[in-house]
Structures are given as structure tokens and as C-alpha cells.
Amino acid sequence: MTYHEKHLTRSASALLAAGQHLRRKDASGTDDIFERLSAKFGEHAGEVLRKLTEADEKMAGFAARILDMEQRAARADFYGGSGSGHPETWGEQFTRHTGLKAFSEETTRPGRFRLEVKTTLTNDPASGGSLGAPTRDATAIIPRRRMQVRDLLPVVSVSSNAVEYAAQTNRTNNAAPVAEGALKPESGFAFELRTLPTQVVAHWIPASRQVLEDVPQLRDIIDGELRYGLAYVEEGQLLYGDGSGSNLDGLVPNSTAFAAPFTISNATLIDTVGLAILQNALADFPADGIVMHPSDWMRIRLLKDVDGKYILGDPQAVITPALFGLPVVATQAMAVDKFLVGNFQVAATLYDRWAARVEVSTEHSDFFVRNLVAILAEERIGLAVKQPLALTYGDFGNVA
């Protein structure tokens, strides 16, 4: 039943109800009125219902045509064509254009017909591709080595360009049991005052002021890279600095050569490290750390027993680099096949005059007038190796 049929039915029901109410209230004069109203309503109800039904059908057809037109227009907008489901070629646009028909019917010549054809947008830079904004991901940075040698040493901050410390150079111990009333023996000690200059480690790069302001994250990258460069050189200097010129006097050049306290037949890498630890202990400097190249640590990690089992644990186990309870620092700053065992907390002290810092300035050449800046990173440090016997440096050589 349509909306209008329902409406007429409700109206008829309301009219009958009203007539019945009047009939009950005043039956004397309402019968005739009720009958005439009913007849009149029935005479026109059918005609009204027919016309309303026809109007409903016309509205439904009109709505369907509107929907079809909207869908065609949407397809045409999307494809840039006539709504046929694919983009029109230039030839299709030309032959379907209404202006072509008008031009062909012209009887006078010469004439000219011009058509502006539409092209399909693509990712080509000459089309819509130039409007796209690429996604910017995080910058890929070259791998950085983890620096760990500094962590083995005591670090002291200083406020001068040189450090002085007293070092004992001799001990004469004449202590002995003494009889009552006898002269007691005299012992002696010798010290010397040593002066250690601090050295500067530095480097810099030029950059334009514009790029630093336009790309803020670039400043962070430069800062990190410059600081990493300082730490990289520092680690090499701590181990192998030869003390000449502005070089540090490193741990290895001041260490004691490894000499096995006793011989082990078919000694392994682990045996060799154990003997070096013993050498330190016999020198009264119990070791607190081991430094070696990552390749040598992996050689140790891959050692197996006679049953083919890994000595330091299964491959899937997470093993903290350590031997005989001492931490192993695996760094590429140490030469391959070499090791350094030591009591690092006693052996040497690292002095920080300037902690690593990064500064920017235009005070270089003609940088000010060229809108350039010099970005400088530097640190000022000193290394004093105070106890050479606390450091044992050796060679794995052909040890398995």
C-alpha cells in the first residue's frame, strides 16, 4: 500500500468514526448528513487515489533518471572523459565534440574548427606527478662504533691546561724483626713530580647558515657526527697513542709485555687470557678488565669441548662478554690477535679539561660575508699511565 492509500484509508476511518459519534450524540438529524458525506467521499475517493498513484509513478521515474545522470557525471569527472568507464583518447574527444558537427554543416569555406583536448593525469613529472609530496623517512646514518675503553678508566675533570701528580719511583723496604733495645732499620722511598699536558682533539666542517635554519634536524646530525668523530679518535689514542707531538701516551705503549707464568700444552685462547690475568695478579695488580678485537672474542665464543659443545654456552644463549669473571671489551680499536689485560682503575687516569663540545662561528676567512659558518667539535684530554705493571699486553699468535 502506498503512502497516499494509507492516508486516504486513515481519512475515511476518521470520517466514519466522526459520523458514528454524531449519530450516537444526536441521532435525529445526523443520519441524513452522514449518508450524504459518505456518498460524496466515495464518489471522489477513487479518482483522487488514481491521480495520486500516477504522481507517485512519475516521481519514481524522475528520481531514477536523476540518479543515472549523477552516476554518469561522477564517472566522467573521475576518468576525464564522457563517463564511459575509461579516459577518452584525443580522437574520441574530437569525433564526439558538438563543434565538429556544426563545422561539417557549414557551407562556406574556408573555416576553422579548434578543440582543446583533455589529457589524463599521471605520475609523470610533466603531468600530475610534480604535485605529489614524497614521504620523508628518517636519515640513514653510517654505523657508529660503540666506544667502551673510556668506561674502564677513572675520569677526572680538571680546570687547567696541565696536570701534576706524584709518582713513586723506588721503595727500599728494610723492615725486620728487632730485638729489644736494638737499632731499628731505616727504609726509604723515592717520588717524583710528573707534569702531564692536556691535548686537543678537534675537527670542523663548513655549512651555510640557510641550510641550518631550513633543515633543523641537520644540526642534530652534524652535532652527533662530529662528537662521534672525537670519540672514535679518542679510543684509538687511549690504546695506541705514542706520546709524540700532540698524541696521548697510550695504554699499550706503556704496558708490560705478556710472559706466561707457566706453560700449558695445547693452550687455547682462553688459557692465554687466564695466564695474563695471573701475571697481573702476581704483580699485585689484580685485573678488572680485558680488551680484545671482536674477531678474537668470537674465536673464543666458538670454542668447543671434545663432545662438540660450545664451552661458553649454546649459540641461542645470550652471553655477556666475560672471562674468569672479568668484563671483555670487544673493540675494533684493538689490533686483531692482540689482547690487553689490566687493572685499569689503578693503571691510568683520564683527565677531562674540555668535555666534547660543538660550537658554531662565522669567524673564519670570509665566512661572514658568504653566509657560511664553521661548525667545530673539540675536546681537551690528558692520559696518565701511572702503573705500567697493572697492564699486560700480549699476542694470541697461533693459539687455537
Rank of each mutant, 00 (worst) to 15 (best):
R219E: 05
K25N: 09
A390E: 04
P286M: 08
S157I: 09
E43I: 07
T172F: 06
S187R: 03
I290P: 04
V201F: 14
M292A: 05
A140D: 12
A76T: 06
R96T: 11
V369P: 01
F324W: 14
R96W: 03
M298C: 01
L326Q: 13
G229C: 08
Y79Q: 03
T263P: 00
Q93M: 06
H4V: 04
G241D: 01
Q237E: 08
W204E: 14
N123K: 03
F339S: 07
A267V: 04
E5Y: 04
A179T: 11
Q387L: 07
T362R: 09
T135Y: 12
A74P: 02
L196N: 10
L218P: 01
D56E: 15
R144Q: 14
H86E: 12
N254L: 02
D366E: 11
R194A: 12
D56G: 10
Q345N: 15
A162L: 10
F258W: 05
E105V: 12
H44T: 13
Q148N: 10
A167N: 09
L37Q: 11
A267N: 00
N280H: 00
K58M: 09
M147Q: 11
V178A: 08
V48C: 11
Y393P: 05
N343G: 03
D271T: 02
L312E: 15
N398Y: 00
A190S: 15
E57T: 09
D249H: 01
P286G: 02
A179L: 13
Q387E: 15
G313H: 08
P110R: 09
P216T: 03
P177R: 06
L269E: 00
E106R: 06
P388W: 02
L238K: 02
T122W: 10
A126W: 01
A60C: 00
A260F: 03
G132Q: 13
E225W: 03
A283E: 10
M292C: 04
A140C: 04
E164W: 13
D220H: 04
G243A: 05
I300Q: 10
T108L: 11
L131N: 00
A267K: 05
E359C: 02
T256R: 01
A175C: 06
N398T: 12
R136C: 05
